[in-house]
């Protein structure tokens, strides 16, 4: 199972994401933002970091890169796509996920281990969790406040597209404690916290993040 990990100029967590894919039993495939080549991958991860130094808006310039045009086309065809932190910002800027991520309400960069509640265990990236399960994974961002117009938020909640909510304190002022959302078909997921940093006891607060990368292997087989 080939899982692509895109590197943009300024990506930081691409190596950790590839490692998480490997620990879950997948084959990580390095993808470069400037190529028009998805290398026949079955799914794609957009990693965390500061693509283009967060210039203009976080994720805005990366969202217009050559490879992202191919990712958008493939996502519309049902390919699973996961955006983590800066990757989530890129997916919102690319129009694959609704809403936007803006400066944290308290203006501080926040870096801590964070409890999340899984609200949807039937997406391509969350099937190995249970509805309502709480998981502990790191969060680290300065522009992670999820916002959208109230009507848009109501529609998202009505359609069950909130996948994760912050539990035990909201680290960035996100509307309605939203930590992650999904596309209408449940194949594209974005979240601010970092599951790829919680895949081994030695380096993470838990191994709760591994389920993202094992879930998608099943989603690809089922497709």
């Amino acid at each position: 199972m080939r899982i692509g990990v895109i590197t943009f100029p300024g990506s930081l967590d691409d190596v950790d994401a590839a490692r998480a894919v490997r620990l879950a039993g997948g084959e990580p495939v390095a993808l470069w933002h400037a190529d028009h080549d998805l290398k026949d991958v079955d799914a794609v991860v957009l990693p965390g970091g500061f693509s283009y130094g967060d210039y203009l808006r976080a994720g805005a310039i990366a969202a217009r890169s050559p490879l992202m045009q191919d990712v958008v086309t493939a996502a519309h065809g049902g390919m699973p796509v996961l955006g983590i932190c800066n990757g989530f910002q890129v997916l919102c800027e690319a129009g694959l996920l609704p809403g936007a991520l803006t400066r944290n309400s308290h203006l501080h960069f926040r870096n801590r281990d964070q409890l999340l509640r899984v609200e949807r265990a039937d997406t391509a990236w969350t099937s190995d969790y249970a509805d309502g399960q709480e998981i502990l994974i790191p969060v680290k961002n300065g522009e992670g406040r999820y916002v959208a117009a109230d009507a848009g938020l109501d529609r998202l909640e009505g359609e069950g597209r909130v996948v994760f909510r912050y539990v035990g304190g909201n680290p960035n002022g996100s509307s309605r404690d939203i930590a992650g959302v999904t596309s209408e078909n449940g194949r594209v997921v974005g979240l601010m916290p970092h599951p790829e940093h919680a895949v081994e006891d030695l380096t993470g607060p838990s191994t709760d993040g591994l389920g993202f990368f094992t879930s998608v292997l099943k989603a690809v087989v089922a497709a």
Partner: peptide
């Protein structure tokens, strides 16, 4: 500029 309904913590800090 941010839409009026989107809070602007940087503006508030200023």
């Amino acid at each position: 500029v941010l839409k009026p309904e989107i809070s602007d913590p940087q503006g508030q800090a200023v």
